[in-house]
Design a protein around this nucleic acid. Structure first.
Length: 542
RNA sequence: GCGCCUGUAGCUCAGUUGGAUAGAGCGCAACCCUCCGAAGGUUGAGGCCGCAGAUUCGAAUUCUGUCAGGCGCGCCA
């Protein structure tokens, strides 16, 4: 049982003695910022003073005698009615043996028995990934890692839109580049793709197949699309893999459309009365649920809008037995969530089965001016270039360091020229320092009882290590990897403080050295586990 | 006009379910390696937490209004 849990339990018991029934969830335990306020603090006497019918301090006085525990050194009432808990040294130090015992599982929660599908990136296979995808990839993958660590059964999924307008343009654009190579240029419209990568693709087609696809036929039309999608998706997969982002499942829109499945779903919705025709287009009555407007699902020319197969795709995901779906989307898609929830509710699902996290835009500054991104002009800052320039660790950390709901300003010059200024190095440096010290003293046995550790920097560090599981739960609940980043930073900070104040290896004082080595080992493990959640490496040397 | 996101130090941003003196990085000023990694540590300057009300023992945090920026608003995805 953690110190926090012990205090909560004692408080619940103490309130019970006053005939006030509370649950442990009702009790808030905070880590005191100031050592004068003890190790942990609770506002329970203030929070429930009205319920108890007495003033906060008076209530605290009543509770105090019931709170004694062998793990607690002393308890003080302070300020308006805070209860400040000073733990015994052994209670604080017990975390070290726990962390070393659990190793890479430290911070991990037992299975919650829930299957969660996390869908992210899902970039159209019509060109290279850009910066916006990078952030979605970093955020989505970190969220998947955190949920998994927090005890959810996580499936990572990428939805490939390999049908519709966009891929028609892709096919045509490649064909145009192909014809160009034979001296017969075709026109490229504004909404076609102008990127140079398509010239490379056209060249490879020419090398493999010569002039076979010059004549305009259904076969060549389909060929250019299929070849383009396969090539682009291949590049995307390779880039994501290098970014340490790997998916369990790739779902294809073309599969969703196969075998009349979309038509059946449409028919089913029609029978349910959720569909009507207006101006030649077919609309879905999403306003019957959460939406503020009905949405078209079949255009007046008879083609589906993107929304219709997307509905089928979400039905498909639910039919695979997930308890929850989580979509990681660009912030410009925020209108999407309520219409998709509505569609799921038509099928009888709760509005809560689908959640969405919206990732705000990245603004890029280079030489002090904002760089606008455009996939089509070919001038976009490609994901691949960014990672090559800055490195996977720095990009992944930087892109989840701030809450995804905040806009991110990315200074390209700074990231490239002064990468050692990046905050990720602060944390990695701490880890490397741990590894270095442990290696220098590998002949000295560790004392995992932590019995010699009592100085303020040591206590602060131990308490912070003990907080890791709480932070994991909070990050999983709020789906905010930035909380892990914040934890990593403060763990590194407390470690560096400790390092500056306490000399670890002292061969004249082996008992103290043994205790401190164990503390460092616990820091190293916790830091590595936390960095892993963000997909950032924990180097032994830098 | 309606909806979503965001306004906190010069800049970029944290700030847990409302708690004790609002924090970090960068930048600025000054210190600290004969000793485990100086990619580090210590100290300082710098704040009407956009503005105005409301709720209460207590508000950067909750509610209302308002101003500013970003994004979106039925046959694009």
């Amino acid at each position: 049982m953690s110190n926090e849990e012990i205090i909560k339990k004692k408080l619940v018991e103490a309130f019970a003695c006053l005939d006030i029934a509370l649950k442990e969830e009702d009790i808030v335990i905070e880590r005191s910022k100031d050592a004068a306020h003890g190790d942990y603090a609770s506002n329970a006497a203030m929070k429930f003073s009205r319920l108890a019918g007495m003033a906060p301090r008076a209530l605290a006085e009543k509770l105090l005698p019931q709170l004694a525990d062998e793990s607690i050194e002393k308890i003080e009432i302070a300020g308006p009615g805070f209860l400040n808990f000073f733990m015994k040294q052994a209670s604080l130090a017990s975390i070290i043996a726990k962390v070393i015992g659990e190793g890479e599982n430290y911070g991990k929660c037992p299975s919650k028995g829930k299957k969660v599908n996390v869908e992210y990136v899902s970039a159209n296979p019509t060109g290279d990934l850009h910066l916006g995808h990078t952030r979605c990839a970093a955020v989505g993958d970190s969220i998947a890692n955190i949920l998994s660590f927090a005890g959810y059964d996580v499936t990572r999924e990428y939805y490939v839109n390999d049908c519709g307008n966009q891929v028609e343009h892709l096919g045509h654009s490649i064909r145009a580049r192909y014809h160009e190579l034979f001296g017969e240029p075709l026109d490229l419209a504004d909404d076609d793709y102008h990127g140079e990568d398509l010239i490379q693709i056209a060249k490879s087609i020419k090398e493999k197949y010569g002039d076979k696809y010059l004549k305009d036929s259904e076969e060549s039309h389909d060929f250019f699309i299929r070849y383009g999608i396969d090539t682009e998706l291949g590049k995307i997969k390779k880039d994501l893999d290098a970014f340490r982002v790997r998916f369990d499942v790739f779902s294809y829109e073309s599969d969703i459309r196969k075998g009349g499945k979309v038509e059946k779903t449409l028919e089913w919705l029609r029978e349910k009365g959720y569909v009507y025709v207006q101006d030649g287009a077919t609309f879905l009555k999403t306003t019957a649920f959460l939406d503020d407007k009905d949405r078209p699902i079949v255009k007046s020319d008879g083609a589906y809008t993107y929304f219709m197969p997307d509905i089928c795709y979400h039905y498909d995901k639910m039919s695979r037995g997930f308890d929850n779906l989580l979509d990681i989307l660009g912030a410009d898609h925020h209108g999407y969530i309520n219409r998709m929830k509505s569609a799921l509710m038509m099928k009888g699902y709760s509005k809560d089965v689908l959640e969405a996290e919206f990732v705000q835009v990245v603004r890029v500054y280079r030489d002090g001016v904002e760089v606008k991104m455009s996939k089509r002009t070919g001038k976009a800052i490609a994901h691949r270039d960014l990672v090559a320039d800055v490195g996977v660790d720095a990009v992944r950390y930087f892109f989840v360091e701030r809450s995804q709901s905040s806009h991110l300003d990315f200074n390209y010059n700074l990231a490239m020229e002064q990468s050692s200024n990046n905050p990720v190095y602060y944390a990695q440096y701490a880890h490397a320092r741990c590894a270095s010290i442990l290696s220098l003293a590998s002949d000295i046995d560790m004392d995992t009882s932590g019995s010699m550790l009592g100085s303020e920097p040591e206590k602060r560090l131990m308490k912070h290590i003990a907080d890791f599981p709480v932070v994991v739960e909070a990050a999983a609940k709020s789906k905010e990897p930035s909380r892990i980043a914040g934890y990593i930073h403060s763990l590194a900070e407390r470690f560096h403080e400790f390092y500056a104040a306490c000399r670890v290896i002292d061969r004249e004082n082996i008992p103290l050295t043994s205790s401190r080595l164990a503390l460092i080992k616990a820091v190293e493990i916790t830091m590595r586990n936390a960095l892993n959640l963000l997909g950032v490496s924990a180097p032994e040397k830098m």
